[in-house]
Write a protein that binds this DNA or RNA. Structure first.
Length: 426
DNA sequence: TCTGGGGTCCTCGGGCCC
DNA sequence: TCTGGGGCCCGAGGACCC
């Protein structure tokens, strides 16, 4: 692609972000097996309880919020005390040595490493650090794309000095500035495009920099497993392997027509481009959300009839949370959906589209209720979620900003009214 | 004692409209 | 009046990502 000939794109990935933030607060846990996760978010009660425990066990000393960093390690909760359905969000290296890792059930992890310290996730704190390191970056290089709490793409192309040593000089400056401001380290990959930059940022973790040029494709990229490509997940990896394609080089060697035949008219050509290190996607600095949702997994599977009251309360709360999120972000939504996860992990979704966007909890609940009526409710439910899509931005007075709501389409009306008699009362 | 929560994007089939 | 096709929206499911 001639257009990307002179682009320098960086991918920056914070090193073990959640764990590193926790270690800033609790440096006494450094080097110990620590697991972060569990079903609930951390509340302020966590630190309050910890300090209360410290005062109880060591009444001879003064314990205040500033003393969290010197609380005795034996006061922290252990994995062995956990009951519930949570999973590990992240684990420190010391914990990984016991075989525990991200996405593992906490009960299973407790058997592997019962003594590991368990910290509940504290998203508010991670978001604070996320905002801090991103502010450092945009001060230096303004064209930054947010890719989640611990990742960004940065366009170095037009930043003064952005091409020096292939981007290494600027990458080093950003790393140092982030460390000075937050105490956190990160890894950076700089390449001609986002696809290659993303792979490069993994090359020298932690606290490393990797520079990739177009000419490095065969030596640095092709030997890697296909799974390293952002967009090739476990399913695609298995399918590729069944055709003897294991490395990105194997993929690059396949004819585009063959890939199209076996992987479809969109994914096939994309696989070919990716294997050849081609990617013209721009670094996008602003984007509107597409949907806003809340979901929760129950302590035990619930049944629509037997556990009606409990389920109803959870349903209402999810709608209230989505309504709060909509309000806070300034949106109304025209399509309201529900999501169920059944005991066998099968996922069922149902959507309900309205003539007019809604934003209040009661309206959300009514629309979600319409969707729920079309869902199979004979079996127990493991998870319930509520989703708002078809978002429309509201101004300060709660009025739609741009396009007026469309009238109900004949299609939607016909569909819902044929489906089920219960829908008549709307 | 397996398997969270919050997203995006793609595909496919059906219905509607022109 | 019948048929066909393209474009679009909707709803459902699935893959993938952090």
């Amino acid at each position: 692609m001639p257009a990307e000939h002179n682009r320098r794109i960086a991918h920056l990935d914070m090193d073990a972000f959640y764990a590193s933030v926790e270690l800033l607060r609790y440096p006494q846990l450094k080097g110990l097996p620590v697991v972060i996760g569990g079903g609930k978010r951390r509340s302020v009660a966590f630190d309050t309880d910890a300090l209360a425990l410290a005062r109880q066990r060591h009444p001879d000393q003064d314990w205040g919020p500033a003393d969290l960093g010197r609380m005795p390690v034996d006061l922290f909760p252990r994995l062995s005390g956990y009951t519930g359905r949570g999973v590990i969000t992240t684990a420190t290296y010391a914990a990984r040595q016991f075989g525990v890792g991200s996405a593992m059930g906490l009960m299973k992890a407790a058997r592997l490493c019962p003594n590991a310290i368990l910290l509940p996730v504290d998203f508010d704190e991670y978001r604070r650090f996320s905002r801090a390191f991103k502010a450092v970056i945009t001060d230096i290089a303004p064209v930054m794309e947010d890719r989640g709490v611990d990742e960004v793409y940065i366009d170095f192309t037009d930043v003064p000095g952005g091409h020096r040593e292939g981007g290494r000089v600027l990458a080093r400056l950003i790393q140092k500035s982030i460390f000075d401001a937050t105490g956190l380290t990160c890894s950076v990959g700089v390449a001609p495009n986002k696809l290659l930059a993303k792979m490069a940022s993994e090359f020298n973790k932690p606290n490393g920099i990797a520079i990739v040029h177009e000419t490095d494709l065969q030596t640095l990229i092709w030997p890697l497993p296909c799974r390293k490509v952002n967009g090739i997940g476990p399913k695609a990896e298995t399918r590729l392997a069944s055709h003897g394609i294991h490395t990105i080089g194997d993929l690059a060697a396949r004819e585009p027509t063959w890939l199209r035949e076996h992987f479809g008219p969109t994914y096939g050509p994309w696989l070919h481009e990716a294997a050849w290190g081609r990617d013209t996607r721009p670094v996008v600095t602003e984007s509107e959300p597409v949907s806003i949702s809340r979901e929760t997994t129950f302590e035990r599977d619930l049944h629509a009839v037997r556990d009606k009251a409990e389920l109803g309360a959870i349903f209402t709360r999810l709608c209230e949370q989505v309504a709060d999120d909509l309000h806070r972000k300034g949106y109304a939504a025209r399509t309201i959906g529900i999501k169920l996860r059944l005991p066998d992990f099968k996922v069922v979704t149902r959507d309900h589209t309205l003539a007019t966007p809604v934003r209040h909890a009661a309206d959300l609940r009514h629309a979600a209720g319409q969707a729920l009526k079309r869902a199979p409710l004979a079996r127990p439910i493991r998870l319930l979620g509520v989703r708002a899509a078809g978002l429309c931005k509201l101004d300060a007075h709660g009025q739609p900003v741009a396009d007026a709501p469309r009238p109900t389409s004949a299609a939607a009306t016909a569909h819902t009214s044929n489906e089920n008699d219960l829908f008549g009362f709307d």
